[in-house]
């Protein structure tokens, strides 16, 4: 697999992993029980997609999905800043969710056209699950459309979505990634040398 393709897959995997973690921060405190279940499930799916993508790259690089997910330093991650933000407002969270799904759909379409049948196959598989995420995002969009808080959140976050579709535009990580990284890799870093999972 070409180095460039590997890097693209890593970018997407990192986006999905970090967004999955951020979305999972709503588990237990989402606005209503049904939404709690639905949004947690979406978060879990994103992490599942990250794992599948990491596995493809890991095989090429002679490493493991866990090593790619947790053993790199924060500046080695390729995620876009928009997924790193710790959003405490539900309106903002849904705005990001909507914008992310919009960009992700375009990205997955591109991957589905890949000459590498494994990459194209995985993209189709992921896309089938994303269809449900898009349905969920659209339903919230329709509901919150015109709400000033939601509109403001969309306006604020929209410029950042271009980075999801263009490696050149990914730019600097936010300081929030470092905090998340600390939390995310804590258990794995505390593992005494020699122990195996």
């Amino acid at each position: 697999m070409h180095e460039k393709v590997q890097n693209t897959l890593l970018e997407i995997a990192d986006d999905e992993l970090i967004l999955g973690w951020r979305d999972s921060e709503w588990t237990g405190i989402a606005p209503l029980l049904e939404e709690d279940v639905a949004f947690s499930s979406i978060a879990q799916n994103e992490i599942g997609h990250a794992r599948a993508l990491y596995e493809l790259v890991a095989r090429e690089r002679g490493t493991t999905a866990d090593a790619l997910a947790f053993d790199r330093s924060p500046d080695e991650y390729r995620c876009a800043p928009i997924v790193e933000l710790r959003l405490l407002d539900w309106g903002q969270t849904i705005a990001r969710h909507y914008l992310y799904e919009e960009a992700d759909a375009i990205r997955l379409e591109r991957l589905k056209q890949s000459g590498d049948s494994e990459v194209a196959g995985l993209a189709s598989k992921i896309d089938r699950e994303e269809a449900y995420h898009r349905m969920h995002a659209q339903m919230w969009f329709d509901r919150l459309q015109g709400e000033p808080r939601f509109t403001a959140a969309l306006d604020e976050l929209r410029p950042q979505t271009t980075a999801l579709l263009d490696s050149e535009l990914r730019g600097e990580h936010t300081s929030e990634l470092t905090e998340l990284w600390e939390e995310m890799t804590m258990v794995r870093r505390s593992q005494p040398t020699g122990t195996k999972w």
Binding site: L32, E34, E35, V37, A38, S41, Y132, H136, M139, R143
Partner: peptide
């Protein structure tokens, strides 16, 4: 049962809880 704001939400939540 599911609690939902409208039919659209009910559709998504019911799929999530009873059909996925």
């Amino acid at each position: 049962s599911v609690e939902a704001a409208d039919d659209h939400f009910a559709d998504v939540y019911a799929r999530e809880q009873y059909g996925r």
